[in-house]
Every structure is written in C-alpha cells, then in structure tokens.
Amino acid sequence: MKLVHVFDAYCGWSYGFVPTLTELVRRRPDLEVEVVSGGLFTGSRRVPVREFGYVQGANAKISELTGVEFGAGYARLIADGSFVMDSAAAARGVTALRQTAPDRVVELTAALQQAFYVAGLSLSDPATYQTVAAAAGLDADAVAGAFTAPDSAAAAKADFARAATLGVDGFPTLLAVEGDRTVAVAVGHATAGQIDGRLKALAATS
C-alpha cells in the first residue's frame, strides 16, 4: 500500500492538512507517499485574491480546526488584494523540490506552504525556492534552476492530469492505493489517528 496526497500549495485547507500528514508519516514511516499538485488556481481561477471574498473567513476556520497559523508576512502579501495565486507556478516548484529530494517531499512541500502562508513569499518567485531549499540543506541554485527549467511546465501539467485521472476535484485528498484499489482516506480534513484507523481497516480487508 502507498499513499497519494493530492493537494495544492495555494490551498488553505491543504496548508491546514500539513500537521496531519506530518504526524501520519511519523507514525507510518513504512508507507510511501506520492505528492501530486492538483491545480486549484489555473485558467479562469487565476485572478487577484480580492476576487475570493471568502479568504479571510476560510483562513480563520482553518486555523480554528487545524491549529495552523497564517503569518504577518502572508497578511501583508495579500493586504491590497492584488496578489495572484498561480497554481501552475506552484506545481512547477513542487516538481523541482520533488525531483531534487524525492524521499523528503512531504517535508519540503510543508516548508513550501509555510513559506507562503507564514512568511508571505510568492510561489511564483524562484527566490522562494532558493530560500526553501537552502533551509532544507539542498542545493538552492539547483532547485531554483529546476523551477525555471522549460520542462517544469510539462511536469506541472502531468501532475494536474494525474489528479484528474485519480478523480480528485477537492484538495487536499489523501488516497490509499494498493494494486488496482484506490480508496480516499481523507478529504479536506482528518486527524492522523482517524486516517491511521482507516488504513488499518483497509489492510484488514485486503
């Protein structure tokens, strides 16, 4: 069995899921975790944040339910409403981190979301990936180079296609995959304990 975590780096609920996934990986180090970008803010949804009037209310709910904090840097970034969340750019960054250190993808994508939601760093800026990579002890220039490489856009599109093939249209979604069986064990929010219980139930029926 392996887990497939379909998320979007610009999704507040995906950010709220970080503590759950981190704890689950700590509890179940035996499980491989594939991280896939879903593409929430693309096409007609790639607009200034002011057009999403629900953001502040949603963030308050996410904090209340999950305990994650939205930092002062993030508040400054979105204050005038002009910032554009571009999920294609964020997905390119995820693929850059994933190919650089595939065994640390859960840790690195968590750091990427903290860079946005706490520090207020744009996920469209190569410097953000240098910052995240350097903090993780990776080659910062190599990660930034992978982010800007021509094939990064194709890799992002491949992630979006993978999410669609899996039938995922809400983020985050955590899937358990074993053979030809794929089961959603969390959508939106769940605790590590709840997911662990669901995984044990699945294992008992396999």
Rank of each mutant, 00 (worst) to 15 (best):
G38S: 13
G39K: 02
T42H: 04
G43Y: 10
G43P: 14
S44E: 14
R46A: 12
R46Q: 15
V47N: 11
P48W: 11
P48F: 10
P48V: 10
V49M: 10
R50T: 02
R50W: 02
E51Q: 14
E51R: 10
G53P: 02
G53L: 03
Y54N: 11
Q56I: 09
G57C: 02
A58Y: 00
A60F: 01
K61Q: 14
K61H: 13
I62D: 01
I62F: 02
S63N: 01
S63W: 01
E64K: 03
L65E: 12
F70A: 04
G71Q: 05
G71P: 03
A72Q: 12
Y74V: 00
Y74A: 03
Y74K: 00
Y74F: 14
A75K: 06
A75E: 14
A75W: 03
A75Y: 04
L77V: 01
A79I: 05
D80A: 05
G81T: 03
G81R: 01
S82V: 02
S82F: 01
S82M: 06
F83L: 09
F83G: 00
F83R: 06
M85P: 08
M85A: 15
D86N: 15
S87C: 13
S87D: 12
A88H: 08
A88G: 06
A89W: 05
A90W: 00
A91S: 11
G93C: 13
V94R: 00
T95S: 15
Q99S: 15
Q99T: 15
A101N: 13
A101C: 14
D103Y: 08
R104K: 13
E107P: 05
T109N: 14
T109K: 03
A110F: 06
A110H: 03
A110E: 06
L112Q: 12
Q114M: 10
A115N: 11
A115D: 11
Y117E: 05
Y117G: 00
V118F: 08
A119F: 05
A119G: 07
G120S: 01
G120W: 03
G120A: 03
L121D: 05
L121N: 03
S122M: 03
L123E: 09
P126C: 09
A127S: 13
T128I: 08
Y129V: 02
Q130Y: 00
Q130S: 11
T131R: 13
A133N: 00
A134Y: 00
A135E: 11
A135S: 13
A135M: 05
A136E: 11
G137D: 02
G137L: 04
G137Q: 03
D139M: 07
D139Y: 04
A140G: 01
A142T: 07
A142N: 06
A144H: 13
G145Y: 08
F147W: 06
F147D: 06
F147C: 05
P150D: 15
P150A: 15
D151A: 13
S152A: 15
S152W: 04
A153S: 15
A154I: 00
A154T: 00
A155W: 07
A156Y: 12
K157G: 12
K157F: 07
K157C: 04
A158I: 09
D159S: 01
F160L: 13
A161W: 09
R162D: 08
R162I: 08
A163N: 05
L166R: 06
L166C: 11
L166P: 07
D169P: 08
